[in-house]
Nucleic acid binder design. Sequence first.
DNA 1: AGAGGAAGTGGATACGTTTTCAAGACTGTC
DNA 2: GACAGTCTTGAAAACGTATCCACTTCCTCT
Lengths: 334, 334
Amino acid sequence: MSGPVQRRITIKEVAEAAGVGVATVSRVLSGGSASAETREKVLAAAARLDYRPSALGRNLRRQRTGGIGLLVPDITDSFYARLADGVLSCARSYGEPVTVGVTGDDPEREAELIGTLIEQSMDRLISVPSGDGEMWAPALRAGLNVVFADRRVRADVPSVVPDDRAGVLTAVEYLAGLGHRKIAYLGRHGQSQRVAAFTAAIASLGLPADRDLVVHARSSRDSAYAAAAGLLQHRPDVTAVIAGGNVLGEAAVLAARELDVRIPRDVSLIMFDDVPWAELCSPPLTVIAQPAQDIGYRAAELVLRQGRRPPAVTLPTKLVVRASCGPKVSAPRR
Amino acid sequence: MSGPVQRRITIKEVAEAAGVGVATVSRVLSGGSASAETREKVLAAAARLDYRPSALGRNLRRQRTGGIGLLVPDITDSFYARLADGVLSCARSYGEPVTVGVTGDDPEREAELIGTLIEQSMDRLISVPSGDGEMWAPALRAGLNVVFADRRVRADVPSVVPDDRAGVLTAVEYLAGLGHRKIAYLGRHGQSQRVAAFTAAIASLGLPADRDLVVHARSSRDSAYAAAAGLLQHRPDVTAVIAGGNVLGEAAVLAARELDVRIPRDVSLIMFDDVPWAELCSPPLTVIAQPAQDIGYRAAELVLRQGRRPPAVTLPTKLVVRASCGPKVSAPRR
DNA sequence: AGAGGAAGTGGATACGTTTTCAAGACTGTC
DNA sequence: GACAGTCTTGAAAACGTATCCACTTCCTCT
C-alpha cells in the first residue's frame, strides 16, 4: 500500500551532482574553506537533492554520538519533568537530541542505563545520581562527560544543585520561629545531602536531635504515602514536617487528611519544590521553591560546553509562605 | 588529571583473543548458529575483555538507528509526562533507548524535530502530533515507523488515543443532568478531535450550539490562564466548563479564584485527566480520567512490534465524581 | 565408497562520513 | 622569469559492525 521507500541521498551523490569530490562536499557543509564558486555549486546540489547528512556515518567516523543522555529518577515527578524540560530546552538551541532514561532511584537500573548509553557511544551525560555514584567510575574512566544534577555525590563530577543547606535551614528556622521543636523530615532515598543539612540545621538551632525524625521513602507514590502515614501515626509528638519533594508533600497532605490530622492546626507542613497545585491545595502549601528548570538548563550548558567546568554550581531556593504552617499548639495531638 | 581514557574494545580484538574470525564473533553475539565449542570460546573472550558492541558500527551497517523517538507537546504537563513514562517503561523492557523532543504544540518545531530524528536515522517514532499531521508526509515516505499518541490526525498512521468521544459525552451528559445548558469547552490547540466530540455531544443532547463556547489556548500555562480568565470574564452566562487537560483545569481554578467565581456554586468544572492533586484541590475536582501511561505503553508496543499493526486503538476514559460540579443555580452570576 | 547435502567458518565488502595527505593551481616577491 | 608560499581540491583511509559468499569439514544416504 505505502509507496516505495525512497533511498537516502548520500554525500557521494551530492558530490557527483555538483561535479566535485566528496571531501569538498563534506568541507563545505561543515564550514571548512572552499572557493566561493565551489561552495555555491555544492550548496545548490545539496539543496536540489534535499540532502541530509547521515548522523550514522558521521558518528562512526568521529567515534562519538552527538546528543545528551539524561537520567532521572522519575519523569512523572514534576520536579524532574521540569528539570528535563530545562535540559531539553538548552539542548534544542544546540540542535542536540536528548535520550532520556528513568532510573527509579535504583542504582542497579542506573548502571544498566549507563551501559546502554555507553553502547551508543554517548559521551555527554546528565544524571540525577541514585546512590553514592560508585557505578559511575567505569563511565568516567571511559572518558564520558558527566554532569550531576540535583544531587552532588562525587567531588570529581561537576554538579548543578539547589542550595539544600540554605533551603532546609530556612524551613527549619521558619518552623522553629513558630514554636515547633519536634520537626520531622520526610525524604526519599538519594537525598543524603538534604538529610545532612536537616540534622545540621536542627543541631545549630539547639533543637532536640532524634534520628527517627527523618523518614525515607522510595520514589513511588505508594511508598511516599506509606512513609507519611507511618510518620503521622507513630509520632503524635511531631508538630511540623518538612517534605523533601512534591510527591512526598502530596503524600503528606493525603495521609494527614486520611488520618484526620489537620494542616496546619495539628501539624505544620513545608514542602520542598513549588508546584502549580501547591497554591490550589487546601490549605495552600508553604514551600521551598527550587529552580528545577534552571538546574536542568545549567547542567546542559555545562555538559555541552567543552571548556573548563566549575566543580559545582549551587542555585538559590526560596521560601514561599502560604498557609500550611501555623504556631505550635501547646497540647500535643491525641 | 583524569586518567588516560581507555580505548574501546572492538569485535576484532575479541576475534583475535578467541582465535576465530570477526564474522564468527558477530554471529555468536547476535544469536546466529555456531558450534557449542566456538560459542564458548567467543563468549569467554568477550566477557574477559568486557566487550561491548558499538551501536555506532551496528547502526551504520544496518542502516538504521535503534531506539525510539518520542515527541510530546510539553514534558512538564503531567499527562504527557505519564505518557512518556509509559513509553519509557515499555522501551526499557526491550532495551531500547528513547530520544525525547518537546514540540510545544508548534508544527514548525515538530517538523524540525522530525528532521533531527531522521538525520539520526531513527526509524521508530511516537508522536503527539501538533497540527494536521501534514509535516509527516516526508517521514512516512522515508519509511519511518510512526505511531501517533493521544491524537489521531491521519488515517494512514496507527494511533493510540483515549476515547475522547465517550469521555466528552459522559462529561456533557453529567453536566446536563445537573441542569446546565451553557457549557463551555476550554481546550488547547491540536485537540480538534475532542472539540468535535464536544460539539457533537452538545448537539446530540439538544443543547444550544454556540461556537464561542469553545475557547483555545496554547500549550503554555500563561496562555491557559488567559483563556480561562477570558472565558469566565466575558461569558457570565456559562454555568459549567469542561477543561480539556490538567493545565487548563489548573488555570480555570486559578482564574475562577482570582475573579471571585466560586466552584461549584457559580460554575461547575470538569477537568480532563485525573492528576494526583485533583483530590487535594479545593474543591476536589471532578475529572475524566485518562490512561496516560497506558497510552504511552501501547504506543511503544505498537511501534516496536514489527508485525501488522491495527489502525487505531482506543482506550477507555472514566468519570471520577468529586466536588467541583453542582446543580445549575437559577440566577445567572453577575 | 562415493556423492550429496548440511553446518560451521572466516575473508572481504559495504554502510556514510570526516580527515589526512599530497598534488595542483594560483599569487606575490626577488 | 623562477621560486616560495598560500589556497583549493580530491583520492584514500579509517571508524566497527553485519552479511554475503566461498570454502572446508563432517555427516548421511544410496
